[in-house]
Design a protein around this nucleic acid. Structure first.
Lengths: 231, 231
DNA sequence: GGGCCCGGTTGACCCATATCAAGGTGTCGC
DNA sequence: GCGACACCTTGATATGGGTCAACCGGGCCC
């Protein structure tokens, strides 16, 4: 009940609510609550029709898919500021994926009904929704291309490069890519086994392209990451 | 210039325009034209900012991705009724993919500016847009899961099963899956080489699950398609 | 109608990555 | 501080599917 104001301010400042405008944001914020949840918590489950939408304030969430045999993988890893379940909410369909917290997190949760009500009446929320979906569609397309066209080395390299801030002050191009998620999760996201991820990171380090640390990697030589040239 | 009325009626009856409502549909229809284009035509090119949106009336369009080395693949194959370039239009970003006709086709083409104008003012078009994007997002997620979790045999089997009408009258479960696209295109869509696709289809046929024809396959035994059991 | 060309199939081989199996190493509870 | 466990890495082997090359077969043009 007693929600910390800073949490709600954080929610307001997320890209999604920023795009949705004051009116819609106010209505949605009033309808929801902020909660802290532990690593491993399953927020929604593949095949179930969700009843709450989630905005991640802090932490990390993985979208997990399970096939008919019970094998599972991570389709995407999202960080703070992201909103989930919009497609299921919009299409009134069961979730395609489960949402699992990869670290202790803080979330803003709003009832799906409230979201749909505001979506129907507020054009700016509709706009925020289609912009969000367009962005997420592009993320998935990028990943399909990655899986079809690039080998393990290039996939890992691209993943590291995208995690490291581009405009780094260091002229050497040194930048830090945080990797707080378990290796297993990152490997699944990249469509490979943890063993292959480990070996690939080792190779990159031995070439001097990166330096591996506890919870991340320093990128020492961006051009040394596995590019188009044979790896 | 002289647009055939039946073409425009066809456009009106597409799921997208049906969801967009009369007003928006009328405005968009007036702003665009119907054109016939030959197989192989590139409607839009990866990296370029598009200026027209396309609605496929008849034929087949492939979304092609090319990586930094010039290798390319097909991310998705779409049939009549589908609308393309919505994400690029919405985000005002260059195309992530090229659009190539896989067969002679008829298209309705409307200027992107018109689309954006109506999108800003008509809530029903906004709704059609986010429903379209939500659906397309789910298609891409499904494909990522396919690529990460299922082997070639299962991918081909799922592809055939989805192409064949579910509610078939024949109690044997016999149904026809049309495969008008070149094998090369289908193989790329499924993330494999034409050779592997050919061998996999051959295997399915030798098991009596399908019968291969000129431009399609009859599914003789749905349960004989490669399922969870070892292939 | 005959030859040519292109998409498709078939076969032999190979490689990237999965799989299986130990062996580290840091962290957390006691 | 010490044990134990979880996570990660490293090593050896197996394999699915890619690659390369030869071989169809059918459509099309002359």
């Amino acid at each position: 009940m007693a929600q910390c104001p800073t949490d709600l301010d954080l929610a307001r400042s997320s890209p999604f609510f920023a795009a949705a405008g004051e009116a819609a944001t106010g209505r949605l914020i009033r309808s929801g609550v902020v909660r802290r949840m532990a690593k491993g918590t399953v927020l929604f489950t593949q095949g179930e029709t969700p009843s709450v939408m989630h905005l991640l304030l802090e932490g990390s969430l993985g979208l997990r898919a399970e096939d008919e045999r019970g094998e599972s993988t991570l389709v995407e890893i999202f960080g703070p500021g992201e909103v989930f379940l919009a497609p299921a909410a919009i299409l009134r369909l069961p979730c395609l994926l489960s949402g699992v917290l990869l670290s202790d997190s803080r979330l803003f949760m709003m009832p799906m009904e409230a979201f749909r009500d505001v979506l129907d009446t507020d054009p700016r929320l509709a706009r925020a929704a289609y912009e969000l979906l367009a962005r997420h569609w592009r993320l998935m397309v990028d990943q399909v291309v990655d899986l079809k066209l690039r080998d393990a080395g290039r996939r890992v390299s691209r993943f590291l490069a995208r995690r490291a801030p581009e405009g780094d002050a260091d002229p050497d191009g040194a930048a830090h890519a945080a990797l707080p998620e378990p290796r297993m999760a990152i490997a699944a996201r990249l469509g490979m086994t943890p063993e292959t991820l480990s070996r690939t990171l080792g190779l990159l380090e031995s070439r001097g392209a990166i330096r591996l640390g506890r919870h991340g990697a320093d990128i020492l030589d961006r051009s040394g990451l596995l590019g188009p040239a044979p790896g």
